[in-house]
């Protein structure tokens, strides 16, 4: 009985401690570490940053925090441009995704029930194939000598190839293409949960279909819209592969800046500061989403 009791109480603790410890060490601690490094100074050493605590030669404790990296971030045009670019591109991409994805989810919901699941599966399927290769496919399509231009030239719509590759348009296409499922699925799931008798009630009370959509369906699918938006906006904010492969060198985005600072310039403290600022933006968005999504208090 005693050993069983021990196992019972500690078995429960074990189930909690194992994943908690893993996440603590490999998820929480890294961010604290990044925060620490972002407050350090760049030095030429291995690793290339100054310690926050150290013993001076006289044996005293020293504690040194520097906000220089953050000051640099907000004073350097390069970083500011990267922040603005990233936010703009992520925002516009998310909106385009919604404009395409919402009607798509709505359309799927309105097909015959036996079609819904196969169609949803078709939406999710590309997600299971390599992201990198799907982005790569667009190079072949959008290139000056690519499939799109070849087709358009052959049909005689244009007489010179359209320059899409290495522009912002290519980035939008890449992001929208890659993240479209992330809008369709949450929107669909809120639409599906919606009580269809609400629409019948609206129709019964004299609302035409479009009015019913605007007044009933759209407000009720707001949580799905918001979830879809942040599921595109957040990863797009730090996107590296798509702007790197499809975008031009003039469109700097945060992910790229962070990558370059870290790998090319070995500027760990400033890269960490970029990461922290991005993190704050993400957290802010999540808190906002949480607030909006909280169901109204039940009467």
């Amino acid at each position: 009985m005693k050993s069983r009791d021990w196992l019972r109480s500690h078995g429960r603790a074990l189930v909690i401690v194992v994943p908690a410890l893993w996440l603590g060490i490999f998820f929480l601690m890294p961010f604290l570490n990044v925060l620490k490094i972002s407050l350090a100074e760049q030095v030429i050493a291995q690793p290339p940053y100054s310690p926050l605590f150290y013993f001076s030669e006289s044996g005293d404790w020293h504690f040194k925090v520097s906000l220089d990296n953050y000051r640099d971030l907000f004073n350097d045009d390069l970083y500011i441009a990267a922040f603005l670019n990233s936010t703009r591109i992520a925002f516009i991409s998310a909106v385009i995704c919604l404009l395409i994805g919402y009607p798509m989810a709505y359309g799927i919901m309105r097909t015959t029930p036996s079609w819904r699941n196969p169609l949803l599966m078709l939406v999710a399927l590309p997600f299971w194939t390599s992201f990198l290769l799907r982005v790569y496919a667009w190079i072949g399509i959008l290139n000056n000598t690519g499939i799109l231009n070849n087709a358009l030239l052959a049909c005689g719509f244009i007489d010179r190839p359209l320059v899409i590759m290495k522009t912002e348009v290519a980035i939008y296409i890449g992001i929208v293409y890659s993240y479209l499922p992330f809008v369709v699925l949450p929107v669909y799931s809120t639409l599906e949960k919606m009580d269809t008798t609400l629409l019948e009630a609206a129709a019964d009370l004299g609302a035409r279909p479009f009015a019913a959509f605007l007044k009933i369906t759209l407000p009720l699918s707001w949580p799905g819209i918001l979830a879809g938006f942040s599921l595109v906006f957040i990863p797009a904010l730090g996107e590296f592969v798509i702007p790197d492969l499809l975008g031009g060198s003039d469109t700097l985005m945060l992910g790229h800046v962070l990558w370059d600072e870290f790998f090319a310039n070995r500027a760990w403290p400033i890269a960490s500061a970029v990461a922290i600022v991005m993190l704050l933006m993400v957290l802010g968005l999540l808190v906002l989403q949480n607030k909006v999504n909280r169901p109204p208090p039940q009467a």
Partner: peptide
């Protein structure tokens, strides 16, 4: 975002 996860884990 992946870049943040990647960077922070590497630094750790």
């Amino acid at each position: 975002p992946e870049v943040i996860t990647g960077l922070s884990l590497l630094l750790l």
